[in-house]
């Protein structure tokens, strides 16, 4: 069975692109277009990994992450933050809230993304810690 990934991203074109790319790489993909929908789908779809955007309407990435980590049924799902380079403060916040890793959207390459997803899932299974945020 394919690994199920939840992509939470408000930019429609990016959500479509990520969904398609990940599907082609052999993942099963569920999309959510804001934080509220992301939190709901995290619980209902039980994905093995969540790709979470930070700047979103209704409920932003940090808010969504807090809710995901607060619910017993979703708190163990590894979360990878989708972000732009300028969000360093928020990346730090997210990592301290329990996000496993982050991905800079602007120049991601599909192979990197797929590798990252695989690594995070492996790391989660072996139970090691999140990396430190980069030094600005």
């Amino acid at each position: 069975m394919a690994t199920k990934i939840l992509v939470v991203e408000d930019e429609e074109i990016l959500l479509t692109a990520l969904t398609e790319e990940l599907k082609q790489s052999g993942f099963e993909v569920v999309g959510a277009k804001d934080g509220v929908e992301g939190v709901e789908k995290a619980a209902s779809e039980k994905p093995e990994l969540i790709l979470l955007d930070l700047v979103m309407p209704r409920l932003d990435g940090i808010g969504a992450l807090k809710e995901i980590k607060a619910k017993p049924e979703t708190k163990d799902i590894p979360v990878v933050i989708l972000t732009n380079l300028s969000d360093y403060d928020k990346i730090s916040d997210a990592l301290s809230l329990g996000a496993m890793d982050y991905l800079v959207k602007a120049n991601y390459r599909l192979e990197d993304l797929v590798n990252k997803i695989k690594t995070v899932i492996e790391r989660k299974q072996s139970g090691s810690q999140a990396p430190q945020p980069p030094v600005v």
Partner: peptide
């Protein structure tokens, strides 16, 4: 500046991927 970058970069990344 960072919002402007964000607003331009997100759709551009999407366009490239698509």
């Amino acid at each position: 500046t960072s919002m402007m970058v964000h607003e331009l970069r997100s759709p551009l990344t999407g366009i490239r991927s698509i």
